[in-house]
Amino acid sequence: MTSKPTVLFVCVHNAGRSQMAAGYLRHLAGDRITVLSAGSEPRDKVNPVAVQAMTEEGIDISQAVPKILTTGAVQESDVVITMGCGDTCPYFPGKRYEDWVLDDPAGQDIEMVRGVRDDIKRRVQALVQELIG
């Protein structure tokens, strides 16, 4: 792994889970980790309930824009974390892959999204510990 690892979070719409994870990782790691996120079928905007849940944590993801998953993004990443994108995620040997099983917050209420957010936070905190100590 390079001195500054790159982590890519992928979910189907790149509007909820992957955006929350990217927000936490940027917040917790600062510039010590390069953070990317993408989706296999990106929406036109981030889920407003996910934005609200992250704002409660003091993290603003309101300006994030869902992006299409590209082969290049996977190739430049050291760690690829998928969140329910299934077989649509490209696979490259030599990359570290993790699949985080998380409920999709699309169309859900704030209570449900807070639970997903808190699960993501725990996982991202563990990832930061592992990658940069």
Rank of each mutant, 00 (worst) to 15 (best):
V101I: 15
K121Q: 11
A73P: 01
L28E: 09
T34A: 14
Q75D: 00
I68N: 05
R114H: 10
D60Q: 05
G30T: 08
V116R: 00
A73H: 02
A22W: 05
I132E: 08
R26I: 04
A64Y: 12
Q52N: 12
G58L: 10
G16R: 04
I132N: 05
K95C: 00
D31E: 15
P42S: 07
S62G: 15
E76W: 02
P48D: 11
R122P: 01
R43T: 03
R96V: 01
T70P: 06
L102W: 08
V79T: 12
S3A: 14
A64D: 14
H13C: 03
V65H: 09
L28A: 08
C85P: 08
T71K: 07
H13P: 05
A15V: 09
H13S: 05
E56N: 09
C11T: 03
F92V: 01
V7I: 14
V128E: 04
A64H: 15
D87I: 12
G107W: 13
D78F: 01
A15L: 04
P66I: 02
D31R: 13
S62V: 07
I33W: 09
T55M: 15
I59Q: 04
C89T: 00
R96Y: 03
S62T: 07
L36F: 09
T70D: 02
K4C: 13
P90M: 12
R17H: 06
V65Q: 13
D109I: 12
Y24V: 06
M112I: 15
M54H: 13
L28Y: 13
I68G: 09
A73L: 13
D103Y: 09
P105G: 12
Q75Y: 06
V79W: 13
P48G: 08
D119Q: 10
V7N: 10
P66G: 03
G84S: 09
L36S: 07
C89Q: 01
S18C: 10
D60Y: 03
N47L: 07
A126H: 10
M20K: 01
S77L: 08
V79E: 11
E56H: 06
A126N: 13
P93I: 03
G39L: 01
E98D: 11
Q108T: 12
I110C: 11
D60G: 02
E98L: 12
M112Y: 14
H13A: 10
I81G: 03
C89R: 00
P105H: 11
G72K: 15
I110N: 10
I132C: 08
R117N: 11
V46C: 02
A29G: 11
